[in-house]
């Protein structure tokens, strides 16, 4: 393949990664924005979403004998709800009791990370398991080139994508718009923004801040779970799969500015696309080293712009 088609292919892979990443990072960003705590177990909510998706899809397909698309559709509805409910319980049982103290919350969520990860290892096993995509048509892509007889359209070998990957991108766009609508147009969004703006005044105006926190934590986890359900037909479910999304979400959220929806989506696009493209041309390890160092340096030299007006 020539350079041009190769770059297009890398960009498409990058766009799928960016779509999933923006949903995951948005969950992390929402939790930090409203609750002012860093949830280190966020990657495990992602992993739980993938594993729950596998259980639901397998149950529907094999036990009930339904077609693959139905299993996927049920998983898309059930997995985020289940993970959200789990996160709600975790918030009520752990985070609320440490009073959302930033440092103690981090230590507690590290503990939660290991509990969830290791419990999954016990219940789900160490194997990676696939979920059937609901549909998966191979789509060959054309490429335009200046040939001997002027512009010519041709189909380079290997330049293709699948209908499912395009569906992932579209679904992520729809979900992002939905989150934006909820935050800006509904009562729940208003209450969440009020809590983010000034916790104590919100409380004084009768907003049940503790319930808003639990709700926010559940929504954040649910977003990570949806992202995982979407990616699991492409990338199998595995108990250690939460590490990379966590790291990438951290990077996105810090570069994009914590609590800012637009910044998070833009940064996810930037990081997702460049990670996809850089990994194709360079060593992925080198790309990760540079990305982590970049995050550290941004935090060191531009903390005020990244943690909002109030330093965390």
């Amino acid at each position: 393949m020539d350079f041009g088609p190769y770059l297009l292919l890398a960009s498409l892979e990058g766009a799928v990664l960016a779509a999933v990443l923006s949903l995951t990072a948005l969950g992390l960003s929402l939790v930090f924005g409203v609750m002012r705590v860093v949830n280190v177990a966020h990657g495990e909510f992602f992993m739980l979403g993938a594993v729950a998706s596998w259980f639901v899809a397998t149950f529907v397909d094999e036990t009930l004998g339904a077609p693959a698309w139905l299993g996927f559709a049920v998983a898309l509805a059930v997995a985020p709800l289940a993970v959200g409910a789990f996160a709600w319980a975790a918030d009520r049982l752990v985070l609320e009791r440490v009073g959302y103290d930033p440092e103690r919350t981090i230590v507690a969520t590290i503990g939660l990370l290991y509990i969830v990860q290791q419990a999954t290892l016990m219940g789900f096993g160490p194997d990676a398991r696939p979920v059937q995509p609901p549909f998966n048509h191979r789509l060959a892509l054309p490429w335009i080139e200046w040939g001997e007889e002027g512009l010519a359209l041709y189909w380079p070998w290997g330049l293709s994508t699948t209908s499912y990957k395009l569906f992932v991108i579209a679904a992520a766009v729809v979900l992002l718009i939905a989150v934006w609508l909820v935050l800006s147009r509904t009562r729940l969004g208003l209450v969440m923004r009020a809590t983010q703006f000034d916790r104590e005044t919100a409380q004084a105006f009768g907003i049940p801040v503790d319930r808003v926190f639990a709700m926010t934590f559940a929504i954040g986890a649910g977003l990570a779970a949806i992202a995982a359900v979407l990616i699991v037909p492409i990338q199998q479910a595995h108990y250690l799969m939460g590490g990379d999304p966590l790291l990438l979400s951290f990077i996105v959220v810090i570069i994009g500015g914590l609590g800012s929806l637009r910044g998070t989506v833009l940064a996810a696009l930037l990081i997702g696309m460049s990670d996809g493209i850089i990994s194709v041309f360079f060593s992925p390890t080198l790309a990760k080293i540079l990305a982590t160092l970049l995050v550290a340096m941004v935090l060191v030299f531009r903390p005020q712009g990244l943690f909002g007006a109030r330093p965390a």
């Binding site: 860093v38 930033p102 440092e103 981090i106 790291l247 951290f250 810090i254 060593s283 390890t285 080198l286 990760k288 080293i289 982590t292 160092l293 995050v295 550290a296 340096m297 935090l299 060191v300 030299f301 903390p303 943690f307 330093p311 965390a312």
Partner: peptide
């Protein structure tokens, strides 16, 4: 470098440096 930050940012910066170190060893 990390002492220019505090609190949560300090924790993340140290985490990121350690991660970069780990990846460098793998590299």
């Amino acid at each position: 470098l990390a002492l220019r930050t505090a609190g949560v940012a300090f924790m993340i910066v140290t985490l990121m440096f350690a991660q970069a170190g780990y990846l460098t060893i793998l590299y």
